[in-house]
Simulated scan of single mutants.
Amino acid sequence: MADQVATCAICGTTTAASRHRRARYCSNACRQRAYRQRVNEPGPALDSFIGRDAELEGLARSDARVLTLVGPAGVGKSRLAKEFAGNRAAWVDLAGTSDVAGACAQAFGRRADEPVLSTLVRELNRNTLLVLDNCERVAADCAALLEPLLLGCPELRIIATSREPLRVPGEVLFAVEPLSITNAVELFADRARASQVGLRLGEREALAALCAKLDRLPLAMELAARLVTVLPVAELLNRLDDRLELLNRGNRTAAERHQSLRAAIGWSYDHLSAEEQHVFRCISQGPGGFGLDGAVQACDLPTDRVLVLLSALVAKSLLTFTGTGRFEQLESIRLYGRERLAEQVRRGQTPAANR
């Protein structure tokens, strides 16, 4: 029987397949590349994905070549990108690197003697979807890399997850908001019941109040759900003013910044400039909402400077502008700011002294 026509699963090259076996790859090089992609892409999720149907539809409708998922710590940007991209994308996690181009090239197995950009252009002309996860600490380097990649790979689309925009030409921002209260309750109940079979959670009103208090952030609710084996929901709700101390039992295999709510918010705070940290601490003293005049009074800085710094905090998903002249903070983020302010006071520093 004559050989059948087949195509390589990696590069699409036509190959010969015998009567008994259809070859998946045209060469050892493509076989090794497929292995590297399996190693670098995130594996299948081991827990259920709840809510976000509207977000998935919105991502599918977008034709932006650079679509950046932005939002605060713990809101679920990476998980949403994972659900959307599935196994269609080349995936690069940038959380632990300062070399964006090198991390991308390494994911594709660049040879030591091969230029980084040449490797990426060649490989990304075969992969039309690239996910860059956790870009916030290397946003400038991401921006510097993306423009030549987009010019060299006309079919390439990039999904980025970041707590702040990359600010590259053609970028479209996709704001990932906290879950709706209905989906938040569903997520909390799902994770709580996974902690103990047959667990009784009590009234839905108490669950809704708990999720609202946790800002409807998926990470916060998943961490809180681990405590229902030792605290009833009503008592847990009463203790949430101390949530940064309580919510510290993440999955053992999760990244360190997702092991606790404090670490998740601290990942953003530690990346702020000294002035931005000063404003962040000062505005945490008040309630969740405030105007520009209140921020100027709290920060003891000129109005124009405060406005610039508030804008930076909005861009970095630590603050929200309502559009009516007021700013708002999630309660978990505000409590973190108060904690850092209290540390400063204990060291004998006034807020102004540490600008």
Rank of each mutant, 00 (worst) to 15 (best):
residue 233 V to K: 09
residue 8 C to A: 11
residue 271 H to V: 12
residue 272 L to N: 06
residue 29 A to E: 12
residue 23 A to H: 06
residue 207 L to Y: 13
residue 41 E to M: 02
residue 203 E to W: 08
residue 328 E to W: 04
residue 92 V to L: 04
residue 201 L to W: 07
residue 131 V to F: 13
residue 208 A to H: 01
residue 240 L to W: 10
residue 177 E to R: 14
residue 13 T to L: 04
residue 35 Y to Q: 09
residue 119 T to S: 12
residue 238 N to Q: 12
residue 1 M to G: 14
residue 53 D to T: 07
residue 284 S to F: 14
residue 66 V to N: 00
residue 102 G to M: 00
residue 279 V to A: 08
residue 194 A to Y: 07
residue 181 I to D: 12
residue 57 E to W: 03
residue 77 K to T: 02
residue 158 I to F: 15
residue 128 T to L: 12
residue 114 E to A: 10
residue 41 E to S: 10
residue 15 T to F: 02
residue 303 T to F: 02
residue 164 E to M: 14
residue 83 E to T: 09
residue 196 Q to Y: 01
residue 328 E to N: 05
residue 36 R to K: 03
residue 261 L to P: 12
residue 66 V to Y: 00
residue 225 A to Y: 10
residue 11 C to T: 08
residue 25 Y to E: 06
residue 204 R to K: 13
residue 35 Y to C: 03
residue 100 V to T: 00
residue 32 Q to S: 08
residue 187 L to E: 04
residue 170 G to E: 10
residue 321 F to N: 06
residue 156 L to C: 15
residue 29 A to N: 05
residue 7 T to P: 05
residue 234 A to L: 04
residue 144 A to D: 15
residue 168 V to I: 13
residue 309 L to P: 14
residue 36 R to L: 12
residue 212 A to E: 14
residue 85 A to Q: 03
residue 73 A to W: 01
residue 26 C to E: 04
residue 112 A to V: 08
residue 242 D to P: 00
residue 191 R to L: 04
residue 94 L to G: 02
residue 198 G to C: 06
